[in-house]
């Protein structure tokens, strides 16, 4: 039997909001280390990699490895029925064809359960090579969401140029051109508000704004976001989920034809 119980149920609500617009369906791979999900969007241009460690749950039991194929729109609808302060439990019998979500209100006076059919998905799994990135940028996640939203009004591509001075986000289109430069924060007194750049080599890459705006749906999961870049490899946009794991988005770059 599989059972995962989380007092901070809002984390699962936010995780589904962060992936349901990019992916239509995905497999939750559960083993005794926790829950992993890896899936590409339909155009195979971006990939979501979610990890929720077993030790981040208030109760976690996984007698046998189980892979649960789910329609993410359905899961999002079910999780919308959970209160922000509810405890959320996901459970399934071994080789079951349904999964049950149980929501308990903080005062235990209201308990809801939703049972959903599982899907047989044989989605291809991609091997993501461990990479030493030339540039990593840690910045406030709300700042990154704002930049993606503002620049996507100017063009459907965004250029991210990272140098030792800082990072520049640019877009051009019919209206004109826009550039946003962020300098490395000098005195890091509040880590969460700092822009911290580690650069081995300068990197400039171009990405489609629409995917970046899908990624920023994860903003509520973490006050910070980390961008990792190297020449001619996919961008990594990572949101750490406190005490339990992370959600990582990979995006293939756009290149001169």
């Amino acid at each position: 039997m599989f059972e995962a119980r989380l007092l901070r149920g809002s984390i699962l609500k936010k995780v589904l909001e962060a992936i349901k617009d990019l992916l239509t369906q995905a497999t939750f791979d559960c083993d005794d280390s926790g829950i992993q999900l890896q899936a590409m969007d339909n155009s195979h241009v971006s990939l979501v990699s979610l990890q929720l460690r077993a030790d981040g749950f208030d109760k976690y039991r996984c007698d046998r490895n189980i892979s649960m194929g789910m329609n993410l729109n359905s899961v999002a609808k079910i999780l919308k029925c959970a209160g922000d302060k509810d405890t959320v439990t996901m459970k399934a019998q071994d080789n079951a064809d349904t999964v049950t979500f149980v929501f308990e209100s903080p005062n235990q006076e209201k308990v809801s359960d939703y049972e959903m059919k599982l899907m047989n998905l044989d989605l291809e799994h991609l091997g993501i090579p461990e990479t030493e990135y030339s540039c990593t940028i840690r910045m406030p996640s709300a700042e990154f969401a704002r930049i993606c939203r503002d620049l996507s009004q100017f063009g459907d591509s965004m250029v991210i140029a990272c140098t030792k001075e800082g990072v520049k986000f640019s877009a051009t289109g019919e209206i004109g051109s826009a550039n946003i430069k962020l300098a490395q924060t000098a005195s890091v007194d509040k880590e969460e508000e700092a822009v911290i750049i580690e650069m081995d080599e300068p990197v400039t890459l171009t990405f489609a704004c629409q995917y970046l705006n899908y990624f920023t749906k994860a903003t509520s999961l973490s006050p910070q976001v980390q961008l990792s870049m190297s020449a001619d490899v996919p961008l990594v946009v990572e949101y750490r989920i406190q005490d339990i794991g992370h959600i990582r988005y990979y995006l293939a770059p756009k290149i001169e034809d």
């Binding site: 155009s43 195979h44 241009v45 971006s46 091997g127 489609a208 756009k254 034809d257």
Partner: peptide, 14 residues
């Protein structure tokens, strides 16, 4: 013009 690449060009299916 810019061409959007695909992830399969960078990650190998396992």
């Amino acid at each position: 013009p810019l061409k959007q690449t695909k992830l399969a060009a960078y990650f190998t299916p396992t």
